[in-house]
Simulated scan of single mutants.
Amino acid sequence: MTRWIIPAVIIYTVATSRPELFFVAASTMVLMLFGVLSAGRITGDPVQKLAFVYLNAGLFGIPVVAGFWGEEAVRVYIGAYIGNSVMGNILGTSLLRGGSNGGSKDDSNGDSGAGDSGPGDIPAPDTQASSSHNGTLRTVLQGLRTSPPVIAVVVGLLCLPAGPFLSLHGAGFYRVLTWVFSFIGLIVLGMWLGAAKLHRADLTRAAGWALLRAVLVSVYSVGVLALARWAHDTAGIHFDQLLAHPQVLFILGVLPPAANIVILETHYRHEGTAAPIIASGAVVSLGMIALAVPILQLIFSS
């Protein structure tokens, strides 16, 4: 059901959006790049680096934002969800494909089994690197073309001329969708945590990464809000929704890693290390959200 609810919410939000939606999406993508660089100074594990920045912004984020701050806040938050989904798929393919040895091993076995290539036919290292880079780029682009959030954004942009009509006649349907999605999110969360098998070391490690993520997102969000305020007051670019709901940027800091990482890791690496990272991250995230929501409500109550 979530396969069509999230795209429907994105299409409606983009079609009836204001400029801050795209500003938040772009800001989130830049934040993820900074996050990968920061995580790379601590660990060389591509799965952990991806889990640090690619977050479960749909099933966890949308219900929290809708439940505590309402529909208008969801409109702003959808920009963060779009940016996280698009950049998450790009980084996931780049990091995990680049760290996988399975493909190169299979290719080398296939070449040796052919029996008709000599030493002169072996590509030079630069040629191999270029081929690998081009293959990664093609995989990224193919993944983006078939990514539901990307398709939903394109459909939403095509529906921009119908934005006033959708705002007038589709608001009720949009409220129902966000409520249903919040309900489904709680059900999925319960099922996910019920099946998770965790150890203390996993939770301790997840807590450390969660605290680092919260600090990075908070510092970056302050900078984004300062830029938005300057653009709003000086450059005449109106960011009314974002400035009215700045807390939606900070909520990214307490969300768990995306479940899609398991699929990406299984496809590229076949190691199975992502599951405990995501499960422990989800448990730690519950406590972080419980602490963050009242703090954000207190800070931004005015």
Rank of each mutant, 00 (worst) to 15 (best):
A171S: 15
G172C: 13
G172H: 14
F173P: 05
Y174Q: 15
Y174G: 04
R175P: 02
R175C: 07
V176F: 14
V176S: 12
V176T: 15
V176M: 12
L177Y: 06
L177M: 14
L177S: 06
L177T: 03
T178E: 04
W179G: 10
W179V: 09
W179A: 14
V180K: 07
V180C: 09
V180N: 06
V180A: 12
V180Y: 12
F181T: 01
F181H: 15
F181L: 12
F181N: 04
S182C: 06
S182Q: 04
S182N: 02
S182G: 10
S182P: 01
F183Y: 13
F183V: 11
F183D: 07
I184E: 04
I184S: 07
I184Q: 07
G185E: 00
G185T: 05
G185C: 10
G185D: 04
L186K: 13
L186M: 11
L186E: 00
L186H: 07
L186R: 07
I187N: 10
I187L: 15
I187G: 13
I187R: 12
I187D: 15
V188L: 14
V188I: 13
V188W: 07
L189Y: 05
L189F: 13
G190D: 13
G190I: 15
G190M: 14
M191W: 14
W192K: 14
W192C: 07
W192D: 13
L193R: 08
L193D: 01
L193N: 06
G194E: 03
G194P: 03
A195M: 07
A195H: 11
A195L: 13
A195N: 11
A196P: 02
A196I: 05
A196F: 09
K197I: 10
K197T: 08
K197F: 12
K197E: 07
K197W: 10
L198M: 14
H199C: 09
H199T: 09
R200N: 08
R200Y: 09
R200W: 09
A201H: 12
D202M: 10
D202L: 04
L203C: 06
T204Q: 10
T204L: 14
R205V: 05
R205D: 11
A207F: 06
A207Q: 01
A207H: 02
A207E: 00
G208W: 01
G208Y: 03
G208E: 02
W209Y: 08
A210K: 03
A210S: 15
A210R: 01
A210Q: 04
A210Y: 02
L211I: 03
L211C: 05
L211S: 00
L212M: 11
L212H: 05
L212K: 08
L212G: 05
L212D: 03
R213C: 01
R213Y: 06
A214P: 02
A214W: 05
A214T: 02
A214M: 02
A214G: 00
V215H: 02
V215A: 08
L216W: 11
V217G: 01
V217H: 03
S218C: 04
S218R: 00
S218K: 00
S218L: 01
S218F: 03
S218T: 06
V219A: 14
V219W: 09
V219L: 11
V219Y: 07
V219M: 08
S221L: 00
V222W: 14
G223S: 11
G223E: 09
G223I: 08
G223D: 07
G223F: 15
